[in-house]
Each structure stands twice: as C-alpha cells, then as structure tokens.
Amino acid sequence: MSESRLIVPARYERIRQICAFVVEAAEVAGLDETAIFHCQIAVDEACTNIIEHGYGGEDKGRIEVACAAGSGQLTIDIRDQAQPFDLGAVPEPELNKALEETTVGGLGIYFMRKMMDEVSFSRTDGANRLVLVKRRTQE
C-alpha cells in the first residue's frame, strides 16, 4: 500500500494540481486510463463542490486529499472544514430533459456516484470527509 497526501488552498486553479496528484496515485494502483479519467472527474467535481457550495467561494479554507494506492484499488480521502454537507440530501439530477428545463446543477455528485465504485460521506470533528474508491475491474 502506497500512501500520499496533499493539502492546498481551496481555489479552482488548484484542482488541476489535485487531479495530477490523484492520477499519480491511480497509476501506482495500476488503474487503467478510463478508471484514471473517472477518478479525475470525481475528484474535480468533489473539490468544485467544496469550494462553491461548502466554503462559498475561493480562499476560504483548504482541501486535504489523501490517496491510498493498493493493488488494483485507489482510495481517495478528501477533507474540508467547510459547513456541514449532507451528500444523501442531494437529489439525482433529472437528465434528458428539454433544453429549457435542463440545468447542470447536481451533476457533480451524480458523476461521482456513476464513475466511482464507492462514495461515502461523514462529518467528524468539524470536518467533512468524502471517501471515493475506484477498483481496477469495473463493469
């Protein structure tokens, strides 16, 4: 098991750095290109939500990302100190609607759920914790 950790200010421009960090760990875990892309999207959407909805803007806190790369499995642990967030309270977006009714809100969490094997959320000691798991073999 290889473990790594990154702490960055909660800014949109830092999300690329977080993605690069996760890609490196995903390669260590032996994930294929598609799975690595899915990890990037999930982490990107998670961090975007933290900045936009959690902190309510940039530079209001930090994002901590820890990766544990095992054989064929990557666990990504994302923590923030933003306001409490209830993942379960977010409804699934209504897809394939007419253009006038189409909004792109709620897609981030939907993408996480679709692209990762496990998505879990908890809050402890004033911090939100999102754990994403991706395994090598999927579908």
Binding site: Q40, T48, V104
Partner: peptide, 19 residues
C-alpha cells in the same frame, strides 16, 4: 482532453442563449 460539469454548464447556458 478533459471536461468536467463546469464545461457542460458553459455549453448549456450558451445553447440556451443562442437559441
């Protein structure tokens, strides 16, 4: 090479405006 939902949002809002 890569597009997250932020890019989709930009395209959908443009599509609505241009329609």
């Amino acid at each position: 090479e890569y597009m997250s939902s932020a890019g989709l949002r930009a395209m959908v809002s443009t599509l609505k405006a241009v329609k």
